[in-house]
Design a protein around this nucleic acid. Structure first.
Lengths: 107, 107
DNA sequence: AATTAATATAGCAATATTACAATATTAATT
DNA sequence: AATTAATATTGTAATATTGCTATATTAATT
């Protein structure tokens, strides 16, 4: 035991929790804020901006990218990160629906 | 090391991450779904519904309550949980603003 | 006062997360 | 070919999370 029992919960609950987990670390939120600001960001720049080491930043970037919220493009040895706006909208709607559905039940 | 470095991040990033952490476990999302449905739920009923033990459910309830998303009232030995709709709205707006602000930057 | 019922707490084991330094990989540049 | 620069990977340590069983607490009921 000690591991989350995903299989006993509804799919929707697992999905929301998975996305929430991406946002559950302030470094990742800060990264998303910064990547939104610049237009194509490098890992090195991000790591300096958020003041975490390059490897730590790289790992966070991979976690966010795996969720689909970030996309990236290599140009030579440089990898430029951008927000995936489609995915961002998907999340916005998912959270919105959760909050509204939960609120609607309370009447 | 190994602990999240909250102090290096903006307050807003920490705040969003804290709330996201509450939603980052499917059991807690399932609890919120269920408590929304019933009108005043008991820990025991919730634990049966979400199929986790009573102590585990109790702990999740405390985590959610600490965030403000749930409120409760004792009647005798029974504790009735309800959604705190005001807090729910606060979260809805917080997430909404995050998604919209992030999206707005991408233009 | 003893019993019952609802909830909370303590203690534990398994696993996950966070962050780093050191190193490896990769691709452009000299 | 050697160097540089950007990123990724490996290994590690500290801490956090998840869930359980066993037990404690609390308040109503008998």
């Amino acid at each position: 035991m000690g591991i989350t029992k995903r299989h006993i919960h509804p799919l929707q609950a697992n999905k929301l929790a998975d996305y929430a987990k991406v946002l559950s670390n302030p470094a990742r939120v800060a990264i998303l804020n910064y990547v939104g600001d610049c237009d194509g960001c490098l890992c090195k720049d991000i790591s300096e901006k958020i003041r975490l080491s390059q490897p730590t930043t790289s790992q966070h970037l991979q976690v966010i990218k795996k969720s689909g919220l970030l996309k990236s493009k290599f140009e030579g040895k440089s990898q430029y990160y951008r927000i995936n706006v489609d995915k961002l909208n998907e999340l916005k709607n998912l959270f919105q629906e959760f909050f509204e559905a939960t609120e609607a039940k309370c009447n």
